[in-house]
Design a protein around this nucleic acid. Structure first.
Length: 403
RNA sequence: GGAGGGGUGCCCGAGCGGUCAAUGGGAGCAGACUGUAAAUCUGCCGGCGUACGCCUACGGAGGUUCGAAUCCUCCCCUCUCCA
């Protein structure tokens, strides 16, 4: 049913689709498929354990969205089966197998979150348990026979671990193999992934070719650095900006990234034209203003314009005018004593992890009670009415005493 | 099957009988500065106790010793080389 595209049309699509990508393997094949007028089946795999989508994921999601906007179909694969193996790019951690209910629940949260960006009508949701659960040991042996150890050791992290005398468990080799097999099962035309996925994606091509399919085109996207500006954004490193976080939170986090990182975020996340980014790099725009613009854009993308404005207002209020947040969480003290020591209160309310930490914070002058700095770690707090506690610049809480 | 390296706090990594809750770096937290930026400087950084202190910790279990992360035995994990 495919209708051929004109060469202009193909060139336009190609330019749009490859923008921002690190590598396309290979370009000629992508061009050929576009020219044929195919509706491309575009695969991307996601881990079922972390259904909290963050900006790092959105780099890929935006790209998928672009494919959809051109009428192509997204194969959204949840790697429930591969999740048993562990992090493909990390250390040797084996994750516990997920219960079927958990997978279903996670898939739901994915739908809810991913479809803030993707078009549900042009998305097929899959999980690789669909074909892996029923694979026999014989099937797995056959699959494992399709590649070699030397080939596996070409993968960057494997080779690094091997040379560094770190252990590599045999089953870790199955991750790329299964991911590649997924491509065969889904008959994908294109697979998208981060640059750390290159090896796995290429293996998909090999397996497809071996199974009589036209090998998928591989497209890698840059990995987004987390808020620390160095390591890739990942939940386990606690450097993420999640798309479901409150607008003020997203806005604030974006505002606090470094200027260098801001350039990167502009490049990878913003819809703002490339000219602006270039000018920004040349110092033609005020950094602070540019950062506000970015913060508004990203906040608005997931929560709407009004929320972005509110986020900006909240930011100005808290950090530029140094005022308290407009909404302060309340917490109720459970206890019958007529007074509480500040260090115990900090611990009980969760503002400090332990009484020791609470004491340390007081000693360092980080704690304010109703706006007044406290210096005595043992200072008693009358257990009456409400008390406002500030710890550092970020942690604020109203403690309610119910007596 | 044999020989030899390793397993230390969130991470990396010293220590190799007492002075070790354990050097150093990174991360993190707090303070100063600022644009909640970067860079820099300062302090903190196992838990509990107002404090003298106590408890838990150096892969696991025993043992030697007045005393062990440090020595011995067994076990587990891991790496390299040989077969």
């Amino acid at each position: 049913m495919s209708k051929e595209r004109s060469s202009n049309e193909v060139a336009d699509q190609l330019a749009e689709l490859t923008r921002g990508s690190v590598e396309v393997l290979n370009l000629a094949e992508l061009k050929k498929r576009l020219a044929r007028g195919d509706t491309l089946r575009v695969k991307a795999g996601f881990d079922p354990t972390a259904a909290d989508l963050h900006l790092g994921h959105t780099v890929l999601m935006q790209k998928l969205r672009q494919f959809q906007q051109l009428g192509h179909k997204v194969l959204f694969l949840i790697g429930d089966f591969t999740a048993r193996i562990g992090d493909p790019s990390g250390r040797n951690e084996t994750r516990p197998a997920l219960a079927p209910e958990e997978i279903v629940a996670n898939a739901e949260t994915y739908k809810e979150q991913a479809f803030r960006i993707l078009d549900p009508d042009l998305t097929e949701l899959h999980s690789n348990g669909e074909w892996m659960e029923s694979m026999t040991a014989a099937g797995l042996i056959e699959l494992a026979a399709s590649t070699t150890v030397a080939r596996m050791l070409e993968r960057d992290d494997f080779s690094r671990r091997y040379k560094g005398e770190q252990s590599i468990s045999l089953h870790e080799f199955l991750y790329p193999l299964i991911q590649a097999w997924d491509s065969v099962q889904l008959r994908s035309d294109v697979e998208l992934g981060g640059t750390d996925q290159t090896f796995n994606l290429l293996l998909g091509r090999e397996l497809q070719r071996a199974n009589g399919q036209e090998p998928q085109v591989v497209m890698t996207m840059p990995l987004l650095e987390g808020t620390d500006g160095v390591q890739k954004m990942s939940k386990s490193l606690d450097n993420t900006i999640g798309i479901t976080e409150p607008p003020a939170e997203i806005y604030g986090k974006v505002m606090s990234i470094s200027d260098t990182l801001m350039l990167r975020y502009y490049e990878l996340l913003s819809d703002v034209g490339q000219e602006f980014v270039v000018e920004l790099r040349e110092g033609k725009h005020e950094a602070m203003e540019a950062k506000k613009r970015l913060a508004s854009e990203l906040t608005g993308r997931f929560h709407g314009e009004d929320a972005a404005l509110a986020g900006a207002e909240e930011f100005a209020r808290r950090y530029q005018r140094g005022q308290l947040p407009s909404e302060i969480p309340e917490w109720e003290w459970q206890g019958s004593d007529s007074e509480v020591r500040i260090c115990d209160l900090l611990k009980a309310s969760g503002l400090a992890k332990s009484a020791s930490e609470g004491r340390r914070l007081v000693r360092q002058g980080a704690v304010k009670l109703d706006g007044k700095k406290i210096s005595d770690e043992m200072a008693p707090v009358a257990a009456q009415g409400k008390v406002l506690i500030e710890v550092g610049k970020r942690r604020v809480l109203v403690v309610k005493f119910d007596r």
